[in-house]
Amino acid sequence: MIGITREDGPSKKRDAAYDLVKQLLMAGQMRPGKHLVVQELADLLQIGVTPLRDALVRLSAEGFLSREDTYGFSTKEMRVEEQRQILELCDITLSAGLRIAGDRMSQEVRAALTELQDVPGRTVEDALVLAGHVRDLYVDVGRAAGNEIMVNLSRVLLDRSHLVRMLDLQMDDAGARTIEDLRIIGIAMSRGDPERAVAATKAILGRRIERLNVLVKEANFIASQATFP
């Protein structure tokens, strides 16, 4: 059984329910096209119905779930065009952020990017580490640009494309090439050259878009094999 054992107030219970269901969706552990019966899901996850329903409303607003009616929700099959639009929006958001941020990106993130050395071994664990660097980059760029809306939007975009990104980083030499581009971004921002950093981000996202048909097909296959809910 998966459950939330903390005794928190309503807001924290909603946040905990949101995080739990989102993690399942991001990892492809919920079958697509599945109508969610709130009471049954609450019993399975050992969550209260009210915080769970609030979490499902939030997830549907962010595009993780489909809203069927006032209280109905269902899981979604990943679609190529939707993922393409997410990646294109990532490109616009990050490019604008890098240009605005200039040298205000934190020294710690710049150093972490420029010091990347190890090439992923195409494992889930390696991809998770590398995906963490990507997430740090987006969040730090948004904060350096002084734009919390950009920070929050970046988080949603990254989470909705999480499984595609993880699969991409494990494909062929994608991890090694992404590491090299992340190093270029770190060096470029340290030298006050945001345009070079923008070019490197476009290279990462461009390669992913080229493989999108394969990546989405694999992501949907993984989710279709899920035994939950």
Rank of each mutant, 00 (worst) to 15 (best):
G3V: 05
E7F: 14
K13N: 03
K13C: 08
K13H: 01
D15S: 15
D15N: 10
A16M: 02
A16C: 00
D19I: 14
R31G: 12
K34G: 01
H35G: 00
H35M: 00
H35F: 01
V37G: 12
V37S: 07
E40H: 07
E40I: 07
A42N: 03
D43S: 15
P51Q: 08
L52S: 02
L52T: 05
D54G: 07
V57A: 08
L59G: 13
A61Y: 10
A61E: 15
E62F: 08
E62R: 15
E68Y: 00
E68Q: 11
D69N: 14
D69E: 09
K76Y: 03
M78H: 15
V80L: 15
V80W: 10
E82H: 06
E82V: 15
Q83C: 12
R84H: 09
R84Y: 15
Q85C: 07
L87M: 13
L87N: 04
E88Y: 04
L94E: 01
A96F: 14
G97M: 05
I100A: 15
G102N: 11
R104V: 12
M105A: 11
Q107H: 11
E108A: 07
L116Y: 10
D118M: 03
V119C: 13
G121W: 06
R122P: 11
T123R: 10
T123Y: 02
A127F: 09
L128N: 05
G132I: 12
H133Q: 02
H133P: 12
V134K: 07
R135V: 12
L137G: 11
V141T: 13
G142K: 02
R143G: 08
R143W: 08
A145Q: 03
E148P: 02
V151G: 10
N152P: 01
R155A: 04
R155Y: 00
R155C: 01
V156L: 08
L157C: 08
L158Y: 06
H162L: 13
L163W: 04
V164N: 06
R165L: 13
M166H: 05
D172Q: 15
D173Y: 01
A176H: 03
R177Q: 13
T178D: 06
I179V: 02
D181M: 00
L182Q: 03
L182E: 05
I184C: 07
G186P: 01
G186Y: 03
G186A: 09
R191V: 06
R191D: 06
G192A: 08
D193T: 10
D193K: 07
P194Y: 00
A197R: 02
A199V: 00
A199G: 04
A200R: 00
I204L: 09
L205M: 01
G206N: 12
R208E: 14
I209Y: 04
R211I: 09
L212V: 08
V216I: 09
V216W: 03
V216Q: 05
E218C: 05
F221M: 06
I222D: 02
S224Q: 13
Q225R: 12
P229A: 08
P229Q: 00
